[in-house]
């Protein structure tokens, strides 16, 4: 019991530490000397950098990465913005050199349709299959219980009667 208490307290302390030391205290990959004086432009640069993949580490954005190339690209993004490029123009500049893979959010175009719509197609296919099977099963139940015609009812009664007779004999 005492050990359990200690575990709970420890978990609580760790949770508090994790919450309080979250993003603010984390060391930034973006160094102060890279940042632009213009706060609005710096914010745009940060937003663009978050959407660009660091090709050295691949699952980090250049905004998160300490790789040399990520730094070079961050500086380049800021240079392009200072030169008056729009956000789209900056993205295009990088994509022209590194291809669509550099975008963390894949673009919508014919070759990526299967990527964007594939999951939806699988879901729709699964739902269609389910509906198909349920409808078919209900269908068979309906045809299996028609209303009895007068003839059928008489036959049924006769058969049931036979059964009772048999039981009676025993």
């Amino acid at each position: 019991m005492k050990a359990k208490h200690r575990t709970v307290v420890l978990a609580a302390i760790l949770a508090v530490l994790a919450l309080t030391s979250a993003p603010g205290d984390r060391a930034l990959a973006v160094k102060p000397d890279e940042m632009l004086a213009d706060a609005a432009m710096e914010a745009r640069a940060r937003a663009i950098s978050k959407g660009l993949r660091c090709l050295v580490c691949q699952n980090q954005s250049i905004d998160d990465s300490d790789a040399g190339l990520a730094r070079d690209l961050r500086v380049l993004v800021r240079q392009r913005l200072k030169a008056g490029d729009s956000d789209e123009a900056v993205f295009r500049f990088v994509v022209d050199r590194y291809g669509d893979f550099v975008l963390l959010k894949p673009p919508m175009k014919p070759v990526t349709y299967i990527l964007w719509f594939g999951p939806l197609l699988i879901l729709l296919g699964a739902m269609a299959t389910l509906v198909f099977f349920f409808v078919r099963r209900r269908g068979t139940r309906i045809t299996a219980s028609p209303t009895l015609s007068e003839d059928d009812r008489r036959r049924l009664e006769a058969l049931l009667g036979e059964d009772e007779d048999e039981r009676g004999e025993r």
Binding site: L55, V56, G68, L69, D72, L73, L76, R97, Y98, G99
Partner: peptide, 11 residues
């Protein structure tokens, strides 16, 4: 490494 970026070099 600026020219290498124009070549799409990443390593």
């Amino acid at each position: 490494g600026r020219i290498a970026i124009d070549w799409g070099v990443y390593g």
